[in-house]
Amino acid sequence: MPFALRMHRGTGRVVTGPADSEGQWAARIAAIATTRDQAAFAEVFRHFAPRVKAFLMKSGADAALAEECTQDVMATLWHKAHLYDPSRAAVSTWIFTVARNRKIDLLRRYARPEPEDLPWGPVDAPDQADALAMQQETTKLAEAIRSLPEKQRLLIERAYFGDLTHSEIAAETGLPLGTIKSRIRLALERLRHAMM
């Protein structure tokens, strides 16, 4: 049984940790996936929809298009909730990728090529320790971004809003990405191993 689901089941609501912690978001996505939980979806919407809209506007969409696109992104989250794997990405990461892909579909008018899914499909039981580690790494990463010198932080933001061309992007972010990468790598290996 998925980690997040176990936390959720029986109570109908999230039980531990601050309301906006990574673990809580994962639990809400699991609730949407398993019980079509509208209250959980409302929480996700309240927190992420204004951010998605702001992201789209910073990326060059006008307010009307950003609103339209935000609703579309949020509806997509509902329909894709069962494909979300907490051992490989934080909820904010997952939502970012959905928003980014829709942004390219709409602003640049082509269907974005996405990597194919992993061969085993969505697993029934994402490794609990992996999911937890991923949440902790994501929290650390957010803290690291907050503590960057402002100039560098703005540069990273501009890259992700699409203000920089690919030749202007320097991958040297000064962020501790090594650990998050090894975590994901580990989770992938574990999954592959379990499925063979």
Partner: peptide
């Protein structure tokens, strides 16, 4: 798998940037 893991790291940065944004009025 290696490229997938490294890509996920950079997407996590995007997620963190999204998380830190001041929301727009809906």
């Amino acid at each position: 798998d290696d490229a997938r893991a490294r890509l996920a790291g950079f997407e996590a940065v995007g997620g963190a940037v999204l998380e830190e944004m001041e929301g727009a009025a809906l």
